[in-house]
Each structure stands twice: as structure tokens, then as C-alpha cells.
Design a protein around this nucleic acid. Structure first.
Length: 302
DNA sequence: CCGGACTCCTGGTTGC
DNA sequence: TGCAACCAGGAGTCCG
């Protein structure tokens, strides 16, 4: 479900509430949500309980909260929302259906309620996930391959930087596009080439750049590639500014509020409706076992 | 290396 | 109205 803008909305929403917070207790309601954790759920609970949290970080669609140890942060709580995951910040007496993991926190300041003047207030973090494709895990932090003074969870180190990241390696991206024998939408969805893009924003960006999803990357001109990357950035930035895309209550921010970008979608889910540029009908085709939405007139393989 | 099939799941929507 | 089929923002593995 959630792509970069939605995950970033969650990260930013968590930041003021969890930075400096202490984990008072952890309850695992469904062990399947710990599939990516390398030990039993007791190990997950033990390694999280009593720890202090640092500022949440993100790479692509992966989110993590470094955990302070007496020495230095060397572990993090890694969260992936999968298709249907949510992180909700609640008062200590609020329940959410489909909560798979719950953390009770002592938060230093702000939360969903009006700011309390007291130094520490109780806060509940509910990890909600209908389909259980998302996960929580405690993972070791390792130096980032391209920037060893930064740390990333070991399970995230193979993920490329996202196109909004200052250290995104544009030269590497274009050189891989030129070298690989694949098509452009596959490449946009390949999180080891560029991260954060999912099915919605891939379709929206390709429409913006007038590129067909099956355009071979090797024959994509450098000018088109540059245009496409700028469309990706523009679409992600606008979606972030609008709080992400919510079709229903499947995606909500940490306060349970929907995003507005669904109103701005040009082709995703718009099959049969007129292309906003040329007026011809938007088409949906099956691709990679999911839908690809595009305008056959504006977007052609060339 | 590449692509397709298949896996992990639940619940809302669609269509007969 | 009832129920089955279909659909969904992701990502990993395996096999040919």
C-alpha cells in the first residue's frame, strides 16, 4: 500500500512523539507480524522493552527507530507497512481493530492529544495491519554502503536511496537503466535501483513524462530519463504535501487522518475516464500481476 | 540476468 | 439478498 509519501507522513508524524520516548511495554497480538524478526517474539519484546527511542529514519518504504543503548545506537525497530500497515498513536485507553503489535510509550512531549505541559505522558503505538504483509523487527544497524558514517538496518542496506535523498546516486541510476535488459516500470518498482516508488506513483510519473510502462530502459533517451526522474520527484513531492494517497481507511497518518492525493491522480484507478491531457480514455492493463494505468495516445513505446 | 509464478494474508467491493 | 469471485498501496524466493 503505502509508498514513499505515505511512509514519510508516518515517519514525520512519529518524530515528535517517539524521539526520546521510552518503551514501557510491548504486546504482540499476532506473531506473523514479526516474520522479519530473526528470533522468537519473546526476543523481540525483550530487546524493545525499556529502551529509549531516537528520531525515526526512513529509506524508501522502510522506516526505523534507532534504539539507544548505554554505548550507542546499534539496533533499531524496523517497520515496514507492506500493503495495509498503519502506525497509530493513541491515548492509552484507545484500541484499534486489527492491531498486531502494541507498544506503550512514555513520550517526552507531543502526541495526538493537545500538548501536555508535563514532561512525560503515556502514549500507545498501535501497529495495525489487515493483510499482515507488513512487519516489525529488531535489527542490527550497519554502516550505509555508500556513506559509512550513516547507519541503516542490515535488512535495509540493499535498498537504494530514494530520489528525494540528497545522496541519491543519479549517475548510478541512469547507468543501470542503460545497462539492464528490462522495461521502465519494472525498473521504477525495483527498490534496489531507486526506492520509494510503488504502483501508484510509477503510473503517475510515467504519465507525466509520457513514457509507456513497457519502454525498454536501454532505449530510453537520456532526456526522457531525466524528464521521468523529475516527474517522479514532482509527483512524490506533491503527494507528500497532500498527506499521501488514501482510497479508504487503509492508509491513514499516525493520527488516523486520510491524505488527499487521491483527488490529484491523473491515471491510477482512472481507467475509462478521459486522459487529463488529451481527453482519450485511460486504459488499465495487467502487468506484473497488478494494474498498469496509462494513456495509450500520450504514452507510447519509442 | 531476467521474467513469471508463487508465497505471505484479510476484508471490502463487484457481479451474478 | 446472498455468496463467490475478484481486487488491493509490497516484496521476497524459486525456477526455467
Amino acid at each position: 500500500m503505502p509508498e514513499l509519501p505515505e511512509v514519510e507522513v508516518v515517519r514525520a508524524g512519529l518524530e515528535p512523539a517517539v524521539t526520546g520516548a521510552t518503551v514501557a511495554s510491548v504486546t504482540v497480538y499476532d506473531e506473523r507480524s514479526l516474520r522479519r524478526h530473526s528470533g522468537p517474539s519473546e526476543d523481540f519484546v525483550d530487546r524493545l522493552t525499556g529502551r529509549r527511542m531516537l528520531a525515526p529514519q526512513r529509506r524508501g518504504k522502510f522506516l526505523w527507530i534507532p534504539l539507544l543503548t548505554p554505548e550507542f545506537p546499534k539496533e533499531a525497530l524496523v517497520v515496514h507497512l507492506g500493503m495495509s500497515g498503519q502506525v497509530l498513536l493513541r491515548d492509552r485507553d484507545t484500541d484499534d481493530p486489527l492491531t498486531r503489535v502494541r507498544l506503550e510509550l512514555d513520550s517526552p512531549s507531543a502526541g495526538p492529544a493537545p500538548r501536555a505541559p508535563t514532561a512525560h505522558r503515556p502514549l500507545r503505538l498501535n501497529f495495525v495491519d489487515q493483510r499482515i504483509f507488513g512487519s516489525m523487527a529488531i535489527d542490527e544497524l550497519v554502516p550505509a554502503l555508500d556513506h559509512p558514517s550513516q547507519q541503516v538496518p542490515s535488512s535495509v542496506s540493499h535498498i537504494a536511496r530514494d530520489p528525494m535523498d540528497e545522496l541519491f546516486d543519479e549517475r548510478r541510476f541512469f547507468s543501470l537503466l542503460a545497462r539492464k535488459n528490462t522495461t521502465i516500470k519494472r525498473a521504477l518498482l525495483d527498490q534496489t535501483l531507486v526506492s520509494g516508488i510503488g504502483n501508484i506513483y510509477a503510473d503517475e510519473s510515467l504519465w507525466g513524462a509520457r513514457v509507456h510502462y513497457e519502454q525498454p530502459t536501454a532505449t530510453l533517451s537520456r532526456a526522457k530519463g531525466t524528464l521521468l526522474l523529475s516527474e517522479v520527484r514532482a509527483v512524490l513531492a506533491q503527494a507528500l504535501a497532500e498527506g499521501g494517497t488514501s482510497f479508504d481507511t487503509q492508509y491513514l497518518n499516525v493520527n488516523g487522518v486520510s491524505g488527499y492525493f487521491a483527488h490529484s491522480l491523473k491515471v491510477y484507478g482512472q481507467q475509462g475516464r478521459p486522459c487529463p491531457r488529451c481527453g482519450r480514455p485511460v486504459v488499465r492493463e495487467q502487468f506484473m500481476n497488478r494494474g498498469s494505468h496509462f494513456c495509450p495516445f500520450c504514452q507510447r513505446v519509442r
